[in-house]
Simulated assay, not measured.
Amino acid sequence: MTGTLSGPLAALLVAAGGAVGAPLRYLTDRFIQARHDTLFPWGTFTVNLLGSALLGFLAALPVGEVMSLALGAGFCGALTTYSTFSYETLRLVQDGARFVAAANVVASVAGGLGAGVCGFLLARAVTG
Rank of each mutant, 00 (worst) to 15 (best):
V20Q: 11
G72Q: 11
S6G: 11
A34I: 00
G77M: 05
L121P: 06
T46C: 06
A102H: 01
F75R: 07
T38W: 14
A11D: 00
A107Y: 02
L58V: 03
T127L: 11
R91W: 09
N104Q: 04
A59R: 06
W42N: 03
G7D: 05
G56R: 10
A59E: 01
A103F: 05
A107P: 04
M1H: 14
L113Q: 01
V100H: 11
L61G: 05
F85K: 04
S6K: 13
F57N: 07
F45I: 00
F75N: 10
L79H: 06
L27W: 11
V14A: 05
G56Y: 07
L61E: 02
V117Q: 10
P8T: 12
F45C: 04
A73L: 14
S108Y: 01
F99V: 15
S52G: 15
I32R: 11
L54F: 14
G114P: 06
D95M: 12
T2R: 15
F75T: 06
A15M: 10
L58A: 13
G111P: 09
Q33L: 07
V126F: 08
G51Y: 09
P62I: 00
G3R: 13
A103D: 03
V66C: 14
G7N: 08
F57S: 02
S68Y: 15
L24T: 01
V14P: 07
Q33C: 10
G128D: 00
G112N: 03
